[in-house]
């Protein structure tokens, strides 16, 4: 009852944003404070792959994106590559080139409050900048960002449709999940590091949402952190999910030769899965999520079934 005025207010607000889709000012709350654009943005620079994926899903071509492969960055994920051929590269995510951005004359820059913290004032001088907690954000955070980006670009209706798609994907996937399956650990494995993704990380929170228990809790505000083989043995997960790059030799191949590894419950049960880290943890957008949901089901991860050949860990 007391909710009613609030609801109608929200509805009115939603309608007022929806109705004049063009030329009306847009105001939203970002993780870096409120942001008002005089009109929906047309020329957007995306400094995370997640934003690039989201913009594509909204039907907007970014004018520039941090898809550089230099300086230790891996560039656009494979599934995005054909879509971003015309997008101007503005350097790496860690050190985007301010000049190139300025030269593109963007009317919106999408940045990450963690990665670009020190850079936000510089970016704001180039164009209105929306900072979101994306790299360290959860699945729900990313959903909120999809809506915000939709509002900023005058595509709110489309964004809401994307959220509805996500909701139905989640409920469909949940039906596959085996209740009371043992706890799991999900980690990005590079040649040098084994980084676990906690219940507050993007992929870790999604796995929890779908009903599998993630054994890794965040450490303070840090949602993903490195673990040693010993630390992994201490957690002794019944399921182990590895995210790797096809062009890299993950550390886990070396660990697998260690007797401790063989003692892991997940190894003994044959429940070690390997997925593409570019798709699963670096993309974080609606297009990537469709493939992620499909692989979650087809790999047997949700149902706690042994992985088919395509998702078996490399030896």
């Amino acid at each position: 009852m007391t909710n009613l005025p609030k609801k109608t207010a929200l509805l009115a607000l939603a309608l007022s944003v929806l109705a004049p889709a063009h030329a009306a000012p847009v105001s939203i709350q970002t993780d870096n404070g409120p942001l008002t654009l005089p009109q929906p943005a047309r020329r957007v620079v995306a400094l995370e792959y997640s934003y690039l994926d989201t913009l594509e899903a909204l039907g907007i071509k970014a004018v520039g994106a941090a898809i550089g492969t230099q300086g230790g960055d891996r560039g656009a994920p494979d599934y995005l590559k054909p879509r971003v051929r015309d997008v101007r590269e503005v350097g790496s995510r860690a050190q985007p080139n301010l000049e190139v951005m300025l030269g593109l004359k963007p009317d919106l820059i999408l940045a990450d409050t963690f990665v670009h913290k020190a850079l936000l004032p510089n970016l704001a001088r180039i164009a209105p900048t929306a900072g979101f907690e994306n790299r360290r954000g959860s699945y729900d955070d990313v959903l909120r960002q999809i809506l915000a980006i939709g509002q900023l670009t005058g595509r709110e209706a489309r964004a809401r449709q994307l959220l509805a798609d996500q909701a139905s994907l989640v409920s469909k996937a949940q039906a596959f999940t085996k209740k009371n399956a043992p706890g799991l650990v999900a980690a990005v494995v590079t040649p040098g590091a084994f980084t676990v993704h906690s219940t507050d990380s993007f992929i870790g929170s999604l796995i929890s949402k779908l009903g599998r228990k993630n054994l890794v809790a965040p450490k303070g505000t840090t949602t993903q952190y490195e673990l040693s083989l010993e630390g992994l043995v201490a957690l002794n997960p019944g399921t182990l999910v590895l995210f790797t790059g096809a062009d890299e030799t993950p550390l886990s191949i070396q660990w697998a030769k260690n007797p401790l590894w063989q003692k892991l419950s997940a190894v003994q049960r044959g429940r070690v899965y390997e997925f593409d880290r570019d798709l699963w943890t670096r993309s974080r957008g609606p297009i990537a999520l469709k493939s992620i949901f499909a692989q979650m089901i087809s790999s047997g991860l949700l149902a706690d079934k042994a992985p088919p050949k395509a998702f078996l860990p490399r030896q």
């Binding site: 301010l98 963690f114 913290k117 020190a118 510089n122 001088r125 505000t221």
Partner: peptide, 22 residues
């Protein structure tokens, strides 16, 4: 340190990238 401080200090390695009037 909490996340973000490290990023704010990346310039300490010796760079004038992002140097502005402030």
């Amino acid at each position: 340190a909490p996340d973000g401080i490290g990023a704010a200090l990346s310039f300490l390695t010796g760079t004038v990238y992002g140097a502005d009037w402030s």
